[in-house]
Computed example of a mutant assay.
Amino acid sequence: MGIKMGKPIVINRELSELDEFVLEVVKLIEKHASYVIVSGYVTILFGRSRGTEDVDFVIERIPEQRFLRMCDEAEARGFEFLNPEDCSGLYEMPVEKMGIRMARRGEMIPNAEIKFPKDYFPREALERRIPVELSGRRIYISPIELQIAYKLYLGSDKDFEDAFFLYELFKDNLDGAMLREYAKRLDVEVPF
């Protein structure tokens, strides 16, 4: 896999099934809302070998009618929602700070968890998102410094390993002041 630093970060490799799923979801969402991909898929994108069942998307809070158009288009494109509500009932979930899950029709995994920003950190990820060219297709991810600090905050072994992986991969290109500021806001220490 080739990774070229810069803005955008360029990744040239054969796409996995998970990458293909992410690109399908991105194609749908970006027609209706700004988005950012956060959490575990970001490390997988850069080559960390780890499993995940879902890909976390934070989207801007959009009006209900626009959200419903996105839901209708998702269903027309062969997706289904794993939540018990139909499209008209789904809007309240992200408004109430819950995620909705969407997968290809008839499949449970992988799925996309879609949320509106619920506090400072998801808003910051959305506002400061960074572009990645994945085999010629553009996607947006959370700033690496925020990813590292947030993974440390979550604190599981897998999250710590994700943080360490990203730190090692990007240590020569990180904004140290930004990383320290995010860590301070999350009340965590960066141990590497």
Rank of each mutant, 00 (worst) to 15 (best):
M1A: 14
G2A: 13
G2K: 15
G2R: 15
I3Y: 07
G6E: 06
P8A: 09
P8M: 10
I9Q: 04
I9W: 02
I9Y: 03
I9D: 00
V10D: 10
N12Y: 10
N12V: 11
L18N: 05
L18D: 05
L18T: 12
D19F: 11
E24I: 00
V25S: 00
K27D: 15
K27H: 12
K27M: 03
K27Q: 14
I29D: 04
I29G: 04
E30C: 03
K31V: 03
H32E: 06
H32A: 03
A33P: 03
S34K: 15
V36A: 08
I37M: 03
S39G: 10
G40T: 08
T43Q: 12
L45G: 00
G47E: 07
G47A: 05
R50P: 06
T52M: 11
F57I: 01
F57V: 02
I59V: 13
I59G: 00
I59R: 08
E60D: 13
Q65R: 15
R66V: 15
L68A: 11
L68G: 08
D72N: 15
D72L: 12
A74C: 02
A74D: 00
E75T: 13
A76V: 04
A76E: 15
F79G: 07
F81D: 08
N83T: 06
P84K: 14
D86E: 13
D86G: 13
S88Q: 07
L90Y: 04
Y91R: 01
Y91F: 14
E92W: 02
E92L: 07
M93E: 12
M93I: 14
P94F: 09
P94T: 08
P94A: 03
M98Y: 12
M98S: 11
G99N: 02
G99M: 10
I100H: 02
M102P: 01
M102N: 02
M102Y: 01
A103G: 07
E107H: 08
P110S: 07
N111P: 00
I114F: 04
I114S: 08
K115H: 13
F116Q: 03
P117K: 04
K118C: 09
K118N: 14
D119M: 01
Y120D: 04
A125W: 01
A125L: 05
L126K: 10
R128G: 01
R128Q: 08
V132C: 03
L134Q: 05
L134T: 01
S135A: 14
R137D: 10
R137Q: 13
R138W: 00
I139H: 01
Y140Q: 00
Y140W: 15
P143H: 06
I144L: 08
E145Y: 10
E145T: 07
Y150W: 12
L152H: 13
L154S: 11
S156I: 09
S156K: 12
D157Q: 11
E161P: 00
E161I: 10
D162S: 03
D162G: 09
L166T: 04
Y167V: 05
Y167P: 04
L169G: 05
K171V: 10
K171S: 12
L174Q: 09
G176F: 09
A177V: 02
A177D: 14
M178N: 00
E181K: 14
E181G: 01
Y182S: 07
R185M: 12
D187W: 04
D187H: 11
D187N: 15
V188F: 07
V190K: 08
V190P: 11
F192T: 02
